[in-house]
Design a protein around this nucleic acid. Structure first.
Length: 277
DNA sequence: AGGGGTACCTGCGGGC
DNA sequence: TGCCCGCAGGTACCCC
């Protein structure tokens, strides 16, 4: 589910709720212990009594930093929402069959982690550099110093179709299925075009359209589709779904559904598979 | 090395 | 109605 706009929206709500607040307790329910990479009792030992010092985003990954004020020691964790994770800020432990764990703050607020499919992760690390997936991550697509030239270099190295190359988080981080579909459509490029066929002009257009779409999606607090699975930490749904041009439009006669790497890809019939520019 | 297929888990909607 | 299949916004791992 969540891609860059949903993760960034989540972080923007969580930051003011978490930063500087002492964690009084951590509880789990509905098999929520499975989200952690160490035994739950150890998670509790480590995190209780700390306060959140930082929360940042890299691609779709969430980087947590906690501080133990007494020992003056640092604790780091890497979180991922995967397909169905979301956080919900409340004054109680939300009654929900998918409420997996809860961060209880000294001020009475409770951060609930809800995840239908339980793919999401909350892994403690010695250092962010040691985290395999983070270490392999390419530049964040919204990073100010990421350029169209870099995107061009990244894409032309692979013979993968553009669709797969843009999903590849080691080339550029942050895009998922929805925003890749929308970006390719807006840029007028066919998902099956080989990455190595990209031109500098096309890479520039791709980056410009991706950033335009992501920025708009951010303003609209992300995309919520089936079952309201994605909600921001205040429980509101993202409004970008109404802006989608191709993603999920399987009943639109102007949109063709392809299968690439086992996933559904939506192409407008105006988008020609001729790979010239 | 890179790329494809599959697994992880739960629930929903469509077709029969 | 009810069952079975396919599908869902992501990544990790195995295999060639």
């Amino acid at each position: 589910m969540p891609e860059l706009p949903e993760v960034e929206t989540t972080i923007r709500y969580l930051r003011p709720a978490l930063l500087g607040e002492v964690i009084r307790d951590l509880t789990a329910s509905n098999r929520g212990e499975s989200h952690f990479n160490i035994p739950f009792s150890e998670v509790q030992e480590r995190i209780i009594g700390t306060k959140t010092a930082a929360l940042n985003r890299l691609g779709k990954w969430m980087l947590f930093e906690f501080l133990n004020p007494e020992e003056n020691s640092e604790l780091k964790a890497v979180g991922h929402l995967r397909m169905s994770g979301r956080y919900k800020i409340a004054d109680e432990v939300i009654k929900h069959p998918h409420n997996r764990f809860q961060i209880h703050l000294e001020n009475g607020r409770i951060i609930n982690y809800i995840d239908q499919r339980r793919f999401g992760t909350f892994h403690f690390v010695e250092d962010f550099k040691n985290h395999k997936a983070l270490a392999a991550l390419g530049p964040d697509i919204l990073a100010a110093d990421f350029t169209a030239e870099q995107l061009y270099e990244g894409l032309r190295k692979t013979k993968k179709p553009l669709y797969s190359a843009l999903l590849d988080q080691s080339i550029v981080a942050g895009l998922g299925n929805i925003y890749v579909n929308e970006t390719l459509h807006a840029a007028g490029l066919h998902p099956l075009m080989p990455g190595l066929a990209i031109t500098p002009t096309q890479a520039e257009r791709l980056l410009r359209e991706a950033r335009r779409i992501l920025t708009l999606a951010l303003e609209m607090k992300g995309t919520t589709l089936i079952d309201n699975l994605y909600q921001d930490p205040e429980g509101k749904t993202g409004q970008f779904a109404k802006m989608l041009q191709v993603y999920g439009k399987k009943s639109d006669p102007d949109v063709e559904v392809l299968k690439i790497g086992g996933r559904s890809v939506f192409v407008h019939r105006n988008t020609k598979p001729t790979f010239s520019h």
